[in-house]
Simulated assay, not measured.
Amino acid sequence: MGMSAGYYLAKRGLKTLLLDAFDPPHTEGSHHGEPRLIRHAYSGGPAYISLALRAHRLWDELEGESGEQLLEARGVLNMADPEQYSYRTRAKEAAGFGIPVEMLDAVEVRKRWPGINLPDHYEAMYEPTAGYLYSEKCVAAYRRLALAAGAELLPYTPVERIAVEAGGSASVHTRSGVFHADRVIVSAGAWFWALEPFVKLPIRAVRKAVGWFEAKEELFAEQRFPGFTFGGPGGGYYGFPSIGGAGVKIGRHDGGNEWRPGEPLEPFGSYSSDEGDLRSTLEAYMPQAAGKLLRGAVCKYELTPDESFIIDRHPEHPGVLLAGGFSGHGFKFASAVGEILADLAEKGKTGHDISLFALARFDKETVA
């Protein structure tokens, strides 16, 4: 989110400094281990749907400016046990935005994608214009273009403290020096806790495991299989086709182990559930993609209590903008979130509806 905002600010001619504790793209945030799904028929109502559509348009623009393919519109198939979740409302809302969706029964799913063993009573919603983003390439493209537009980047420069003077000017303290600005955007992911007590957000960090499994390429290769999500008694999962023969990637959206930034992140395989949950889901629904584990990795979610985002001003310092709690489903929106943050920093307002992401929805004692 920060790299996207930096790109839009620099592109508009504003003097922009980017500070990162590491060297983006890197493995210490939530953007590595690409790809990431991008969907438009989104849960959460019209605000999320319109944001997803704007984000897709901005990704297309970034592709054009960078000259790289960043988005694959190969479709996303969402499948669920209707006793636990129904796509009917989401499909109806999507139709109001002109988003093409198809409601499919299990028979039709198995016919179109023979690698899926969907129970008879399950339902599915297919989005043919959705797909996935190459997340690390997206961050790298924003970085390159932001620097070309005049932004300055200081990697390996963790922020130790932020202070705001009486007149509203902010000072950002790092081991490399103190920097002053009229506007500051803080998009620290799981690391917001390091800035307490200046800001205290209701965000908890969770360790998540993802795996790539050997699959029958004639069934699961990227040319013939879409991105996917599952929702059933065993939890919620998401995944991707075998891209370039790398194997089917799958991760679990719910669950996970809490983690405090700065502490060691236990590697993949530290828990039997790391591979076990992923494999059991593939064996149940996509058995011909449940082959040898080709690769395992861990990543991080930064969860808010309602798993919706925080995009707002600091409750006491309006010149400080906060963007966090993207809760494992935020990357697809990074382009639009960067635009929103640039709007707020430059103009003090944005044309996007961000009321859903306001801090006021939480108990004030947790954020002030």
Rank of each mutant, 00 (worst) to 15 (best):
Y48G: 03
A190Q: 07
S280C: 11
R295F: 08
G168N: 06
R12P: 01
K292R: 15
Y42N: 13
P82H: 06
K347W: 06
Y301W: 04
K111C: 05
E218H: 12
I185Q: 10
Q84T: 05
S355W: 02
L154S: 00
Y8Q: 14
V101G: 02
A149C: 09
H121W: 11
S86K: 13
I116Q: 00
E365K: 15
F228C: 06
F228G: 09
L359K: 02
P155E: 08
K208D: 00
E61F: 03
V101M: 06
D120I: 06
D343M: 07
P241T: 05
G45E: 03
L118E: 08
Y285H: 14
E302Y: 03
A170R: 13
K300F: 00
G338R: 03
G276C: 08
G64P: 00
G131R: 08
P233V: 08
E72R: 15
T304D: 11
R110M: 06
A342Y: 11
V320M: 13
D81P: 01
R112K: 10
S335Q: 12
R110G: 03
F362I: 00
A336S: 13
R295V: 05
L147H: 05
Y285S: 09
G131Q: 07
A73V: 01
E152F: 04
G167Y: 10
G98W: 05
E283T: 13
E263T: 13
D254S: 14
G98E: 01
P24C: 04
E123P: 00
V337H: 01
A188Q: 13
V210M: 14
K332G: 09
G64R: 15
K11T: 11
E136Y: 03
A148T: 00
T129S: 11
F228D: 09
Y87L: 09
N117E: 13
K208E: 03
S308E: 13
A140W: 08
G29D: 07
L344Y: 11
G6K: 11
W212A: 04
W113P: 01
W191V: 00
I311R: 09
Y7L: 12
E165M: 12
H352T: 06
E346R: 15
W59M: 14
P197F: 11
R54Y: 04
A146K: 09
S66C: 01
S86D: 04
A290H: 07
S187F: 05
R260G: 01
R313T: 12
G255Y: 07
